[in-house]
Computed example of a mutant assay.
Amino acid sequence: MSITGSLRAGRNSGGNTLSASDYIILDERFAGLIHVNAAPEVLWDGGRWTEGPVYFHAGRYVIWSDIPNDRILRWDEMNGAVAAFEQPCRNQNGHTLDREGRMIACEHRSRCISRYEHDGTRTVLADAHEGKPLNSPNDVVVKSDGSIWFSDPSYGIDSDYEGDAAPAEQDGRHVYRIDPAGEITRVISDMKQPNGLAFSPDESLLYVADTGGTHFPDCAPVIRAYPVSPDGRSVGAGTDFATCSEGFFDGFRVDTGGNIWSSAGDGVHCFAPDGALLGKILIDQVVSNLCFGGPKRNRLFICATTTLRAIYVNATGC
């Protein structure tokens, strides 16, 4: 039975009205992971489909994508200013930082994984596998050994809305690994439309969301867990970790306690490492992706359809 978070009517310091409907607590563990006097704040509105947030600690700003508008935007944590970071941006989707603080980007239009160097130049890291172009890289994560793991569904080539319509040249939609030396290998090939992905805190598991239901009605909206091999270069057979109760899981992140904070059709869903749904942060738009940020990594930055939002939680992002 669910327990709705108890809040008195009022306003937080950001001027947002607090409401019991901001949270649904399904497990008492979730009560320890949220601040009931903190509500989601709308930091910016005006996109078509926002995605791929990443927080830069050195500059205290967030970068995110507005894919159909072919632009990357930047929100400054110090003054709340929003500006275009790059436009056009080749319909970028997901982003992350590598071990040196460089931004890694998934590009739909150029069908590649790229890296922004410290001097501002751009390096293409992978745009093909076995001599054939990738589909449209979607989301990306960097492992502690410097390897880059990314999903490659077909959304960027399905139409001209989020990229350039084109036939797929790969034999499916897969997950790949880029070795620090630059070699690209396929690591997961049993998904319909692999999407968001993240490692567990000890990197023993790779979690991957499958949004294949957008193309294959019999595909369940799940996050699957894959055990990472001892050498860190491949994964074993995956198992279903969680099923989405509202819409699809898209992007997600993991906190230091191993809890997964995932996008969903009705907001952010939080899962314990044992797969139990602990609770929800309800958002009035479909959530696409999120990241932890702020000086203490305890603030969730949330991309929800047309908006960038944020909320403080009682958890620390990995």
Rank of each mutant, 00 (worst) to 15 (best):
G293D: 05
D76M: 15
F301T: 07
G258D: 04
H118L: 15
D152W: 03
S245T: 13
N69V: 02
S114D: 02
A38W: 00
D255M: 10
N37T: 14
I3E: 14
N138Q: 05
R253P: 01
R309T: 06
F150Y: 14
R297T: 00
F241H: 03
G14S: 11
V175N: 09
V141W: 01
P167G: 13
G267T: 05
F271Y: 15
R8A: 11
I281S: 05
K132R: 15
S154I: 11
G247Q: 08
D255Y: 04
A20P: 12
V286N: 11
S110D: 09
G156F: 01
D255N: 13
F271M: 02
E100M: 09
R29G: 13
C303S: 09
V42M: 12
S245E: 15
E117A: 15
D284C: 03
R102H: 12
A310I: 06
P295V: 10
G146K: 06
G59W: 04
T4Y: 00
S13Y: 01
T307I: 09
H108F: 02
W49Y: 10
N289F: 04
A9Q: 14
E41C: 00
E130H: 11
G258N: 06
A126H: 07
I302M: 08
A276F: 09
R102G: 08
D274V: 11
A264Y: 00
E117T: 13
P201F: 06
F252A: 04
R8Y: 00
G47Y: 03
I188D: 03
I104C: 06
R99C: 07
C270E: 05
P201Q: 09
V42G: 01
L206M: 11
T307E: 14
T96F: 09
N16S: 12
G196N: 03
N289H: 03
F199Q: 05
D274G: 10
E130K: 14
D179K: 01
I72L: 15
Y176N: 01
S110W: 04
P273S: 02
P194L: 06
S204C: 10
G15E: 07
T306H: 14
I148Y: 08
S21Q: 14
D70A: 07
R122D: 02
H174N: 15
A272C: 04
G212C: 04
R173A: 13
A84P: 11
G247R: 05
V141Y: 00
I72Q: 08
C270I: 12
D127Q: 14
G212T: 04
A225C: 07
C303D: 05
G182M: 13
V140D: 02
D240Q: 14
L7Y: 00
H215A: 13
L308W: 03
V222P: 00
K192L: 10
K192T: 15
L97E: 07
T96I: 12
N69P: 02
P227C: 07
V222L: 07
P227D: 08
D145P: 08
C270L: 11
S263E: 12
P40N: 10
A198P: 09
V287R: 02
D160P: 01
A237E: 15
T50N: 12
W261H: 05
C89A: 15
D145F: 13
N37Q: 14
A84M: 13
T17M: 03
L125G: 01
C89T: 10
